[in-house]
Simulated assay, not measured.
Amino acid sequence: MKTFLLAGLMFLGLTLNLNAQSDDSYKQETIEFIKLTGATKAFQNAIAQIGQMVPEDKKVDYTAEAEGTLDDLYSKMADIYMAEFTQGEIEQLVAFYKTDLGKKLASKQTSLTQKAMGLGQNWGMEVSAIAQKYQ
């Protein structure tokens, strides 16, 4: 009985260890995907833009500390993506973003998002004007 219990615990430990390794590689691949989409450039731009208010003699320290927050941000973002996409889907997305078309999409993503947000704001004002007619 003790041998059976010990063997079961060893198997469980091995299974948990393998799952932890699999989850870690899944998370790392998800982080790679997020970076391939152009997020790194967007975050670097945000750090620089926010840092404009920091005095020049403190910018190096500010930049280092701000960039130090990115690993945690990527990890949290990965958790969000992992809740929506399987590891196989993430692998396919990584493969796509490594293609020429995927690289082009990633390089234009920030600009496209900004333009789309502008359109969305204009559309929202248009719909608000329509709603006002009915008040």
Rank of each mutant, 00 (worst) to 15 (best):
A95G: 06
I80Y: 15
D57H: 09
A66S: 08
M53E: 15
D71M: 04
D79S: 09
D72N: 08
T69E: 14
E67H: 10
Q52T: 07
S107Q: 14
G102T: 04
D57T: 04
A78C: 03
D57F: 01
S107D: 15
I80N: 13
L105D: 13
F85M: 06
A83I: 02
Y81S: 05
D61M: 05
E91K: 10
E65L: 04
I90K: 02
D100W: 05
Y62F: 13
Y81W: 10
D61Y: 09
Q92L: 03
K108Q: 15
D72Q: 12
E91Q: 11
A83Q: 12
Q52G: 15
Q52S: 12
K98A: 11
Q92D: 15
L93T: 00
L105E: 15
D100A: 09
E84G: 05
K76P: 06
L93M: 14
A106G: 09
D72W: 00
P55S: 08
A78S: 09
L105V: 09
E67M: 06
G88I: 03
D72E: 14
D100H: 07
E91L: 02
K104V: 01
E67V: 03
K104P: 01
G88H: 08
T63F: 12
A106N: 10
E84D: 13
D79F: 05
Y62G: 02
M53N: 10
A66P: 01
V54W: 14
T99C: 08
D72M: 08
K103V: 05
K59H: 08
E56P: 06
A106D: 14
Y74F: 14
A95E: 14
G68N: 06
D72V: 05
G102H: 02
A95R: 06
